[in-house]
Measured scan of single mutants.
Amino acid sequence: KLETFPLDVLVNTAAEDLPRGVDPSRKENHLSDEDFKAVFGMTRSAFANLPLWKQQNLKKEKGLF
C-alpha cells in the first residue's frame, strides 16, 4: 500500500514540491480512503470505472492533476 498524505500536501502542488515517492500523475493514489471519498464523492472503485477522460477532468477540477 502506498503512503498517504493529507489533502493540502497534494492539492495544487507542483511535481517538484510533492513528497518523495509521489507520482505527480497519480496524486489521488496517495489520499486516504476517507479523503478520496470526500474529494471525489465516490469510492476508488467507482472512480476507476469512469472513462479516463472523466477521471482526468475530475482530477483537474479538484487540483489533483
Rank of each mutant, 00 (worst) to 15 (best):
K60F: 10
W53S: 15
N12C: 06
W53P: 09
L50W: 01
Q55F: 00
R44S: 04
A14E: 13
A14H: 12
E3L: 14
A46R: 07
L50V: 02
N49W: 01
K27E: 05
A48E: 12
V39M: 09
P51D: 06
L10A: 08
K59D: 02
K54R: 13
G63A: 05
F36H: 01
P19V: 02
Q56A: 12
E3T: 15
A48M: 11
F36K: 06
K62H: 10
G21Y: 05
R44A: 04
G41L: 07
A15R: 11
H30Q: 04
F5N: 14
F5E: 14
A48P: 00
A14P: 14
D35E: 05
L31P: 05
H30T: 03
S25M: 12
P24S: 10
N49Q: 10
V9S: 08
M42E: 00
K59I: 04
A48C: 07
E34M: 12
K1N: 10
P19G: 03
R20F: 12
G21R: 07
P51M: 03
E16Q: 10
Q56H: 13
L18T: 07
D33I: 04
E3C: 08
N12F: 05
A15L: 09
T43V: 05
E3K: 15
V39W: 05
V22R: 01
E61T: 08
V22Y: 04
F65N: 15
V9G: 07
N29M: 15
T43Q: 15
M42A: 04
S45C: 11
A46C: 12
L2N: 15
A48Q: 06
E3S: 14
Q55C: 00
A46V: 13
L50H: 00
F40W: 01
P24K: 11
Q55P: 00
D33E: 14
D33W: 00
H30A: 07
K54P: 00
D33Y: 05
K60A: 14
E28I: 09
N57L: 13
D33G: 03
L50F: 05
K60Y: 04
R20G: 13
A15S: 12
D23F: 00
V9N: 11
D17W: 06
M42N: 00
V22L: 07
S32C: 09
E28N: 01
D17R: 07
D23R: 02
K60E: 14
S45I: 10
R26M: 08
K37I: 08
R20Y: 08
P24M: 05
T43S: 14
A46Y: 06
K62W: 04
D35M: 02
F40Y: 04
L64V: 03
N29L: 13
A15H: 15
N49D: 11
V39E: 06
A15W: 03
L64S: 04
L52S: 14
T13D: 12
D8A: 09
N57Y: 10
P19C: 02
E3W: 04
D33M: 00
S25K: 13
L52K: 10
L58S: 01
A48G: 12
K54T: 13
K62V: 14
L31M: 09
F47Q: 00
T43G: 12
H30S: 11
S32D: 09
D8C: 04
F40R: 01
V39Q: 07
L2M: 15
S25G: 13
K54H: 08
L58M: 15
K37E: 09
F36I: 00
F36G: 01
K62M: 07
K27P: 15
M42Q: 04
P51N: 02
K37N: 12
G63T: 03
A38G: 10
M42T: 05
N12P: 03
K1T: 04
L31F: 01
R20E: 14
F47P: 03
F47K: 02
L64M: 07
K37C: 12
D33R: 03
N57D: 15
D17G: 09
G41H: 09
N49T: 13
E28P: 01
E16L: 03
W53R: 10
S45R: 12
P24T: 06
V9P: 07
V11C: 07
N49F: 04
A48F: 11
L7C: 06
A14V: 08
L58D: 00
T13Q: 10
K59Q: 05
F40H: 03
P24N: 06
E61L: 09
P51K: 03
K37D: 13
A15Q: 07
L10I: 07
N57W: 09
L7P: 12
A48T: 12
L31V: 05
N29F: 04
F65T: 09
N57C: 13
L58R: 01
L52N: 15
T43I: 02
E3F: 08
N57V: 10
S32P: 02
D8Y: 03
D23Q: 02
P51I: 02
P6Y: 02
V39I: 09
A38E: 12
V11D: 07
L50Y: 04
G63E: 06
K1I: 02
S32N: 09
R44W: 02
A46M: 09
T13R: 07
D33T: 04
G21F: 05
E3G: 13
L2P: 13
Q56R: 11
A38I: 10
S45E: 14
V22M: 04
F36R: 00
F36L: 01
N57E: 15
G63I: 01
K62S: 10
N49L: 12
A15E: 14
H30G: 06
G41V: 00
K1S: 06
L64I: 10
L50G: 00
L2H: 12
V11I: 13
F5H: 15
V22P: 02
L58K: 04
N12Y: 03
R44P: 07
K62G: 04
Q55S: 01
T4G: 05
D23W: 02
L18V: 06
L31A: 02
E61P: 02
L2A: 15
D35T: 03
D17N: 13
V39N: 05
A46H: 12
G41M: 12
D35N: 05
V9I: 12
L50K: 03
L50R: 01
K27D: 05
F40E: 00
H30K: 06
L58P: 00
L52M: 14
K62N: 09
K27H: 09
N49Y: 06
F40C: 00
A38L: 13
K59C: 05
F47S: 01
Q56C: 10
S25R: 11
V9E: 15
F47N: 00
K62I: 10
E16V: 08
G63D: 08
D17H: 06
A46T: 13
G21Q: 09
V9R: 11
P6C: 06
E3N: 15
L7F: 07
V22I: 12
E16D: 14
D8N: 11
F47R: 00
K60D: 07
Q55K: 05
A48L: 12
A46P: 02
P19T: 06
W53G: 13
E34A: 13
R26F: 13
K37L: 13
G41T: 03
S45M: 13
D17A: 11
Q55R: 08
K59S: 03
Q56S: 10
E3I: 12
